[in-house]
Simulated scan of single mutants.
Amino acid sequence: MPELLMGLSLGLGAGVTPGALLTLVITASLRGGFRAGMRLACVPLLSDLPVVLLSVTAVGAMPAAAVRVLSVVGGLYVVYLGVSTAREARTAEPPRPGADAPTSAADVLRGVVVNVLNPHPWLFWIVVGSPLFVAAWGRAPASALAFLAGFYVVLVGSKLVLAWAVGAGRHRLTPRGYRLLLGGSGLLLAGVGAVLTLRGLLPS
């Protein structure tokens, strides 16, 4: 099922790419161990519902030609993200904690607010996720749901793995290991973006 593979690949890239939420996950894990990081890793399951619903509704109302243009734009955007991530991986360092120590419920709420106000999830779902979901839903709803499930399983799962690596032992997540993980996800993202671009350009 190609939609499932797309969801898994995009979820990995989104899960390990540096950003506000990943920094909160690492910070919580460094300060409070795996359980604290785990709560932050699950924030997308709480915060992304309005983002997904609004984006899918908007894209679903567009004509087919506009969705195809959006698919090409989204594919090129993913290629850009992949190349940028792979380049940054050469000198990237694992995120370090900031000045604020996290507190369980307050930290989860903070993560939800950060994620909802972050433009990146909105941009991803408008130009990448929603065109894929809408096109798959038109062919077979099960494929669209597989894409959604694969994306969030790996998105949250990759953050959980990072939280465990940091929380279990401060030296488990070495700079080299982090760079390899980040570089691999960047190359994967670039490949997925190329496939998405071709799918938007080629007739169905």
Rank of each mutant, 00 (worst) to 15 (best):
T91Y: 05
V83G: 07
L76D: 03
P94N: 11
V114Q: 10
T85K: 02
G74F: 05
V114I: 07
G74P: 00
R68L: 07
P102L: 00
V59G: 12
V69T: 15
Y77R: 02
G82S: 05
R96T: 13
A89P: 02
P119Q: 06
V108K: 03
L70E: 08
L81A: 12
L81I: 10
T103R: 14
A105L: 08
Y80R: 10
T91G: 04
V78Q: 04
R110Y: 04
D100H: 10
A89I: 10
T85W: 00
E88W: 05
V73Y: 09
R90I: 00
V113N: 03
L81C: 09
A99I: 04
V79G: 06
R68D: 11
Y80D: 05
L76Q: 07
Y80F: 13
V78A: 03
S84G: 10
R68Q: 14
A105F: 00
S84L: 12
A92I: 12
D100W: 08
R90Q: 12
A65K: 05
L70Y: 10
G111V: 03
V69D: 15
L117V: 14
G82Q: 01
G98A: 06
A99C: 01
L76P: 01
S84C: 04
G75S: 06
N115V: 06
V114G: 10
A92D: 08
L81H: 01
